[in-house]
Protein backbone atom coordinates (compact mmCIF):
# COMPACT_ATOMS: atom_id res chain seq x y z
CA UNK A 1 0.00 0.00 0.00
CA UNK A 2 2.70 2.45 1.05
CA UNK A 3 6.37 2.06 0.43
CA UNK A 4 9.05 4.45 1.62
CA UNK A 5 12.50 4.01 0.14
CA UNK A 6 15.61 5.65 1.56
CA UNK A 7 13.81 8.89 2.25
CA UNK A 8 15.84 12.00 3.11
CA UNK A 9 14.91 15.60 3.72
CA UNK A 10 17.13 18.59 4.24
CA UNK A 11 15.76 22.01 5.08
CA UNK A 12 17.67 25.08 4.07
CA UNK A 13 17.25 27.82 6.59
CA UNK A 14 17.99 31.23 5.13
CA UNK A 15 19.30 33.95 7.38
CA UNK A 16 17.17 36.92 6.55
CA UNK A 17 18.23 40.51 5.99
CA UNK A 18 16.08 43.41 7.04
CA UNK A 19 13.39 45.04 4.92
CA UNK A 20 13.24 45.25 1.16
CA UNK A 21 16.97 45.60 0.63
CA UNK A 22 17.51 42.48 2.71
CA UNK A 23 14.92 40.63 0.66
CA UNK A 24 16.52 41.71 -2.61
CA UNK A 25 19.97 40.71 -1.36
CA UNK A 26 18.50 37.39 -0.30
CA UNK A 27 17.56 36.78 -3.93
CA UNK A 28 21.17 36.75 -4.98
CA UNK A 29 23.24 35.53 -2.11
CA UNK A 30 22.25 34.23 1.24
CA UNK A 31 23.72 32.42 4.15
CA UNK A 32 22.25 28.97 4.35
CA UNK A 33 22.01 26.54 7.17
CA UNK A 34 21.18 22.93 6.40
CA UNK A 35 18.95 20.93 8.73
CA UNK A 36 18.88 17.17 8.15
CA UNK A 37 15.36 16.48 9.31
CA UNK A 38 14.93 12.97 7.87
CA UNK A 39 17.90 10.67 7.29
CA UNK A 40 17.14 7.58 5.26
CA UNK A 41 13.80 6.03 6.19
CA UNK A 42 12.75 2.66 4.82
CA UNK A 43 9.47 0.99 5.62
CA UNK A 44 6.42 -0.62 4.13
CA UNK A 45 2.83 -0.34 5.29
CA UNK A 46 0.13 -2.81 4.31
CA UNK A 47 -3.51 -2.17 3.60
CA UNK A 48 -5.63 -1.91 6.73
CA UNK A 49 -2.79 -1.28 9.17
CA UNK A 50 -2.95 1.40 11.85
CA UNK A 51 0.58 2.63 12.40
CA UNK A 52 1.68 4.99 15.15
CA UNK A 53 4.58 7.25 14.38
CA UNK A 54 6.22 8.35 17.59
CA UNK A 55 9.28 10.30 18.60
CA UNK A 56 10.30 13.43 20.49
CA UNK A 57 9.70 16.95 19.19
CA UNK A 58 11.79 17.73 16.16
CA UNK A 59 12.53 14.09 15.38
CA UNK A 60 11.13 14.40 11.85
CA UNK A 61 7.61 12.99 12.17
CA UNK A 62 5.82 15.89 10.51
CA UNK A 63 8.47 16.14 7.83
CA UNK A 64 7.98 12.46 7.00
CA UNK A 65 4.20 12.81 6.88
CA UNK A 66 4.52 15.86 4.65
CA UNK A 67 6.71 13.96 2.21
CA UNK A 68 4.31 11.02 2.24
CA UNK A 69 1.38 13.31 1.45
CA UNK A 70 3.07 15.14 -1.42
CA UNK A 71 3.50 18.44 0.41
CA UNK A 72 7.28 18.36 0.56
CA UNK A 73 9.59 17.16 -2.18
CA UNK A 74 12.11 14.69 -0.72
CA UNK A 75 15.77 15.66 -0.99
CA UNK A 76 16.29 12.04 -2.06
CA UNK A 77 14.41 8.77 -1.89
CA UNK A 78 10.80 8.11 -2.78
CA UNK A 79 7.32 7.52 -1.44
CA UNK A 80 4.99 5.16 -3.28
CA UNK A 81 1.30 5.28 -2.53
CA UNK A 82 -0.44 2.31 -4.08
CA UNK A 83 2.51 1.95 -6.41
CA UNK A 84 2.47 5.61 -7.53
CA UNK A 85 5.33 7.95 -6.80
CA UNK A 86 3.66 10.83 -5.00
CA UNK A 87 6.28 13.37 -6.04
CA UNK A 88 6.06 12.54 -9.73
CA UNK A 89 2.35 11.79 -9.96
CA UNK A 90 0.99 14.02 -7.24
CA UNK A 91 -2.47 14.66 -8.71
CA UNK A 92 -3.17 10.97 -9.25
CA UNK A 93 -1.60 9.71 -6.03
CA UNK A 94 -3.34 12.16 -3.70
CA UNK A 95 -6.75 10.82 -4.71
CA UNK A 96 -5.97 7.83 -2.53
CA UNK A 97 -5.07 9.78 0.58
CA UNK A 98 -6.74 11.91 3.21
CA UNK A 99 -4.78 14.30 5.41
CA UNK A 100 -5.58 15.85 8.79
CA UNK A 101 -3.25 18.16 10.69
CA UNK A 102 -4.02 18.80 14.33
CA UNK A 103 -2.63 22.32 14.30
CA UNK A 104 -4.25 23.64 11.17
CA UNK A 105 -7.52 23.13 9.43
CA UNK A 106 -7.99 22.15 5.81
CA UNK A 107 -11.37 23.85 5.84
CA UNK A 108 -12.14 27.31 4.55
CA UNK A 109 -12.63 29.83 7.39
CA UNK A 110 -15.22 31.86 5.52
CA UNK A 111 -17.48 28.98 4.65
CA UNK A 112 -19.95 26.82 6.47
CA UNK A 113 -18.86 23.23 6.91
CA UNK A 114 -21.36 21.95 4.35
CA UNK A 115 -20.09 24.49 1.81
CA UNK A 116 -16.52 23.31 2.27
CA UNK A 117 -17.80 19.76 1.80
CA UNK A 118 -19.67 20.79 -1.34
CA UNK A 119 -16.46 22.18 -2.80
CA UNK A 120 -14.62 18.96 -1.95
CA UNK A 121 -17.40 16.99 -3.61
CA UNK A 122 -16.66 18.87 -6.84
CA UNK A 123 -12.87 18.71 -6.45
CA UNK A 124 -12.86 14.93 -5.99
CA UNK A 125 -15.82 14.34 -8.32
CA UNK A 126 -17.70 12.36 -5.71
CA UNK A 127 -21.08 11.19 -6.86
CA UNK A 128 -24.08 12.35 -4.87
CA UNK A 129 -25.03 8.92 -3.63
CA UNK A 130 -21.60 8.06 -2.27
CA UNK A 131 -21.36 11.56 -0.81
CA UNK A 132 -24.55 11.34 1.18
CA UNK A 133 -23.70 7.83 2.32
CA UNK A 134 -20.34 8.98 3.65
CA UNK A 135 -21.96 11.96 5.34
CA UNK A 136 -24.38 9.64 7.04
CA UNK A 137 -21.59 7.42 8.32
CA UNK A 138 -19.65 10.48 9.50
CA UNK A 139 -22.70 11.76 11.32
CA UNK A 140 -23.11 8.40 13.02
CA UNK A 141 -19.48 8.26 14.16
CA UNK A 142 -18.74 11.92 14.80
CA UNK A 143 -22.15 13.57 15.08
CA UNK A 144 -21.32 16.22 12.50
CA UNK A 145 -24.96 16.66 11.53
CA UNK A 146 -25.39 19.45 14.02
CA UNK A 147 -22.37 21.48 12.90
CA UNK A 148 -22.87 21.22 9.13
CA UNK A 149 -24.40 24.66 8.80
CA UNK A 150 -21.95 26.34 11.16
CA UNK A 151 -19.30 28.69 9.74
CA UNK A 152 -15.87 27.20 10.36
CA UNK A 153 -14.56 30.38 12.01
CA UNK A 154 -17.16 30.02 14.73
CA UNK A 155 -16.27 26.45 15.60
CA UNK A 156 -14.53 25.19 18.71
CA UNK A 157 -11.30 23.25 18.23
CA UNK A 158 -13.13 19.98 18.81
CA UNK A 159 -15.83 20.79 16.27
CA UNK A 160 -13.27 21.85 13.73
CA UNK A 161 -11.36 18.62 14.21
CA UNK A 162 -14.54 16.63 13.61
CA UNK A 163 -15.15 18.72 10.49
CA UNK A 164 -11.61 18.07 9.28
CA UNK A 165 -11.91 14.34 9.93
CA UNK A 166 -15.15 14.09 7.99
CA UNK A 167 -13.74 16.25 5.17
CA UNK A 168 -10.72 13.97 4.86
CA UNK A 169 -12.95 10.92 4.36
CA UNK A 170 -15.45 12.33 1.83
CA UNK A 171 -13.58 10.91 -1.16
CA UNK A 172 -13.11 7.55 0.59
CA UNK A 173 -9.31 7.56 0.56
CA UNK A 174 -7.45 4.29 1.02
CA UNK A 175 -4.97 5.90 3.40
CA UNK A 176 -5.53 8.50 6.09
CA UNK A 177 -2.65 10.51 7.54
CA UNK A 178 -3.09 12.31 10.85
CA UNK A 179 -0.38 14.53 12.29
CA UNK A 180 -0.91 15.10 16.02
CA UNK A 181 -4.69 14.98 15.72
CA UNK A 182 -5.37 14.84 19.45
CA UNK A 183 -3.33 17.88 20.40
CA UNK A 184 -5.38 20.22 22.58
CA UNK A 185 -8.58 18.21 22.30
CA UNK A 186 -10.97 17.70 25.19
CA UNK A 187 -11.57 14.18 26.48
CA UNK A 188 -14.88 13.81 24.64
CA UNK A 189 -13.53 14.76 21.23
CA UNK A 190 -10.46 12.63 21.78
CA UNK A 191 -12.76 9.70 22.42
CA UNK A 192 -14.72 10.46 19.21
CA UNK A 193 -11.51 10.68 17.25
CA UNK A 194 -10.30 7.29 18.44
CA UNK A 195 -13.69 5.79 17.70
CA UNK A 196 -13.56 7.38 14.25
CA UNK A 197 -10.17 5.85 13.47
CA UNK A 198 -11.22 2.40 14.66
CA UNK A 199 -14.48 2.54 12.74
CA UNK A 200 -13.11 3.68 9.38
CA UNK A 201 -10.39 1.07 9.72
CA UNK A 202 -12.95 -1.61 10.44
CA UNK A 203 -15.67 -0.54 7.98
CA UNK A 204 -13.57 0.64 5.06
CA UNK A 205 -10.23 -1.04 5.70
CA UNK A 206 -8.68 2.42 5.62
CA UNK A 207 -4.96 2.36 6.34
CA UNK A 208 -4.16 4.88 9.07
CA UNK A 209 -0.85 6.54 9.86
CA UNK A 210 -0.78 8.86 12.79
CA UNK A 211 1.73 10.76 14.86
CA UNK A 212 0.92 11.51 18.44
CA UNK A 213 2.34 12.31 21.83
CA UNK A 214 -0.65 10.76 23.50
CA UNK A 215 0.18 7.30 24.80
CA UNK A 216 -3.52 6.52 25.10
CA UNK A 217 -3.88 6.97 21.34
CA UNK A 218 -1.10 4.48 20.73
CA UNK A 219 -2.29 1.94 23.25
CA UNK A 220 -5.86 2.01 22.01
CA UNK A 221 -5.25 2.24 18.29
CA UNK A 222 -1.94 0.95 17.09
CA UNK A 223 -0.84 -2.58 16.63
CA UNK A 224 2.34 -1.36 15.00
CA UNK A 225 4.57 1.53 15.97
CA UNK A 226 7.51 3.21 14.30
CA UNK A 227 9.78 5.05 16.69
CA UNK A 228 11.82 7.80 15.08
CA UNK A 229 14.53 10.00 16.50
CA UNK A 230 16.74 12.53 14.71
CA UNK A 231 15.20 11.45 11.43
CA UNK A 232 16.19 7.80 11.88
CA UNK A 233 13.99 4.81 12.67
CA UNK A 234 14.84 3.39 16.09
CA UNK A 235 12.17 0.70 16.22
CA UNK A 236 9.56 -0.56 13.81
CA UNK A 237 7.27 -3.40 14.67
CA UNK A 238 4.45 -4.86 16.66
CA UNK A 239 3.75 -2.79 19.74
CA UNK A 240 3.59 -5.64 22.25
CA UNK A 241 6.64 -7.34 20.74
CA UNK A 242 8.65 -4.17 21.07
CA UNK A 243 7.53 -3.82 24.65
CA UNK A 244 8.43 -7.44 25.29
CA UNK A 245 11.84 -7.04 23.75
CA UNK A 246 13.08 -3.71 25.00
CA UNK A 247 11.23 -3.56 28.29
CA UNK A 248 10.66 -7.18 29.35
CA UNK A 249 10.20 -6.31 33.00
CA UNK A 250 7.43 -5.48 35.42
CA UNK A 251 7.23 -3.56 38.60
CA UNK A 252 5.68 -4.85 41.79
CA UNK A 253 4.40 -2.24 44.19
CA UNK A 254 4.15 -3.47 47.78
CA UNK A 255 2.72 -1.79 50.84
CA UNK A 256 4.14 -3.09 54.13
CA UNK A 257 3.01 -2.41 57.68
CA UNK A 258 6.10 -0.42 58.54
CA UNK A 259 8.96 1.37 56.81
CA UNK A 260 11.53 -1.36 57.37
CA UNK A 261 11.62 -2.53 53.76
CA UNK A 262 13.19 -5.85 52.77
CA UNK A 263 15.50 -6.34 49.74
CA UNK A 264 15.46 -9.17 47.22
CA UNK A 265 18.52 -10.49 45.40
CA UNK A 266 16.85 -10.93 42.00
CA UNK A 267 14.65 -7.81 42.04
CA UNK A 268 15.81 -4.24 42.03
CA UNK A 269 14.35 -1.91 44.63
CA UNK A 270 13.64 1.16 42.49
CA UNK A 271 11.81 3.33 44.99
CA UNK A 272 10.74 3.38 48.60
CA UNK A 273 8.46 5.82 50.26
CA UNK A 274 7.68 5.15 53.94
CA UNK A 275 6.15 1.72 53.89
CA UNK A 276 5.56 1.50 50.11
CA UNK A 277 8.25 -0.04 47.87
CA UNK A 278 8.57 -0.72 44.13
CA UNK A 279 10.57 -3.68 42.84
CA UNK A 280 11.57 -4.09 39.23
CA UNK A 281 12.06 -7.66 38.05
CA UNK A 282 12.55 -9.49 34.78
CA UNK A 283 9.93 -12.01 33.77
CA UNK A 284 12.59 -14.43 32.66
CA UNK A 285 14.34 -14.49 36.03
CA UNK A 286 11.55 -14.36 38.53
CA UNK A 287 7.81 -14.82 38.63
CA UNK A 288 5.61 -12.39 40.50
CA UNK A 289 4.43 -15.23 42.70
CA UNK A 290 7.98 -16.08 43.76
CA UNK A 291 8.78 -12.47 44.56
CA UNK A 292 5.64 -12.00 46.62
CA UNK A 293 6.28 -15.25 48.48
CA UNK A 294 9.87 -14.29 49.30
CA UNK A 295 8.95 -10.78 50.43
CA UNK A 296 6.03 -11.89 52.56
CA UNK A 297 8.37 -14.44 54.15
CA UNK A 298 10.40 -11.55 55.51
CA UNK A 299 7.78 -8.93 56.29
CA UNK A 300 4.01 -8.83 56.53
CA UNK A 301 2.40 -7.40 53.33
CA UNK A 302 -0.65 -5.17 53.41
CA UNK A 303 -1.32 -4.59 49.69
CA UNK A 304 0.23 -5.21 46.25
CA UNK A 305 -0.14 -4.25 42.57
CA UNK A 306 1.75 -5.26 39.40
CA UNK A 307 2.47 -3.00 36.44
CA UNK A 308 3.71 -3.85 32.95
CA UNK A 309 6.27 -1.53 31.37
CA UNK A 310 4.43 1.34 29.73
CA UNK A 311 4.90 2.91 26.35
CA UNK A 312 6.60 5.84 27.99
CA UNK A 313 9.30 3.44 29.19
CA UNK A 314 9.63 2.01 25.70
CA UNK A 315 10.05 5.41 24.17
CA UNK A 316 12.53 6.45 26.82
CA UNK A 317 14.56 3.34 26.25
CA UNK A 318 14.39 3.63 22.48
CA UNK A 319 15.63 7.23 22.66
CA UNK A 320 18.22 6.16 25.21
CA UNK A 321 19.71 3.63 22.82
CA UNK A 322 20.17 6.38 20.30
CA UNK A 323 21.81 8.63 22.86
CA UNK A 324 24.36 5.96 23.77
CA UNK A 325 25.41 5.55 20.12
Amino acid sequence: MIRVNDLHKEYHVVKKGQGLSGAVKGLFKSEKLTVNAVNGLNFHINEGEIVGFIGPNGSGKSTTIKMMTGILTPTSGEVLINGQNITKHRKEAVRDIGVVFGQRTQLNWDLRLEESFELLRHIYRIDKKQYSETLEVMDEILGIGEILSKPVRQMSLGQRMKGDLAASMLHSPKVLFLDEPTIGLDVGTKYSLRKFIKEINRLRKTTVILTTHDLGDIQQLCERIIIINSGVIMEDGNLSEIVERIAPYRTLKVEFYDSDIPKHERAELISEDNNVACYKFFKSELTAAELIRDLSGEKAIKDISIEEAGIDDIIRIAYGIKNVE
Binding site: K66, T69, G70, I71, R90, K91, E92, V94, R95, I97, V99, F101, R104, Q106, N108, L119, I123, Y124
Partner: peptide, 21 residues
Protein backbone atom coordinates in the same frame (compact mmCIF):
# COMPACT_ATOMS: atom_id res chain seq x y z
CA UNK B 1 2.43 30.34 6.24
CA UNK B 2 2.30 26.94 4.57
CA UNK B 3 -0.96 27.59 2.69
CA UNK B 4 0.16 25.38 -0.16
CA UNK B 5 -0.14 22.28 2.05
CA UNK B 6 -3.84 22.20 1.39
CA UNK B 7 -3.53 22.64 -2.37
CA UNK B 8 -0.77 20.06 -2.68
CA UNK B 9 -2.85 17.33 -1.07
CA UNK B 10 -5.69 17.81 -3.57
CA UNK B 11 -5.90 16.41 -7.08
CA UNK B 12 -5.86 19.74 -8.94
CA UNK B 13 -3.14 22.09 -10.18
CA UNK B 14 -1.60 24.06 -7.33
CA UNK B 15 -1.52 27.42 -9.14
CA UNK B 16 -5.10 26.94 -10.25
CA UNK B 17 -6.22 26.33 -6.69
CA UNK B 18 -4.14 29.19 -5.37
CA UNK B 19 -5.85 31.68 -7.68
CA UNK B 20 -9.32 30.26 -7.87
CA UNK B 21 -10.23 28.98 -4.45
Amino acid sequence: EGDFDRYLTRPLGVLYQFFFT
